[in-house]
Computed example of a mutant assay.
Amino acid sequence: MTIATIEIPDKKTTLVKQLLKELGVTVKIEKEEKSPYDPKFVAKIKKADKDIVKGRTKKIPIADLWK
């Protein structure tokens, strides 16, 4: 068995699904949702998460937050 991932425009999904069904191909539809976030923002957050894991952070006690 071979698994292939293809991107289909929303307008053509039904047509392609019917064609593949006629050919005896099992079809699993997964709709990709666009993120509402700016890609630069997402990259910045991911970088911060990596920094936390690598220990490149500074811990501030709660009592000192407002000083």
Rank of each mutant, 00 (worst) to 15 (best):
S35E: 12
K11D: 12
K47T: 03
D51E: 13
M1D: 06
F41S: 07
T5F: 03
K54P: 04
Q18K: 15
V25E: 02
W66E: 12
K50Y: 02
V27H: 13
F41P: 06
I62G: 12
I45K: 07
S35I: 08
P36L: 02
P36K: 11
K50M: 10
I45D: 00
W66P: 12
E33Y: 05
K31N: 12
L20H: 04
T13V: 15
E30A: 13
L19Q: 15
A63R: 12
I45F: 01
D10G: 10
V53L: 11
V42P: 08
I6M: 01
L65F: 05
I60V: 11
Y37W: 04
W66L: 13
L19V: 12
T14H: 11
I3F: 00
P9N: 11
I62W: 05
D10H: 07
F41K: 12
A63H: 10
A48P: 15
R56L: 15
T2V: 08
T26P: 14
K44V: 04
K67H: 03
K50Q: 14
I45P: 05
K47W: 04
K12W: 03
T14P: 11
E30H: 13
P9I: 02
K28R: 10
K59H: 03
T57Y: 11
I6R: 00
K47C: 01
K21M: 04
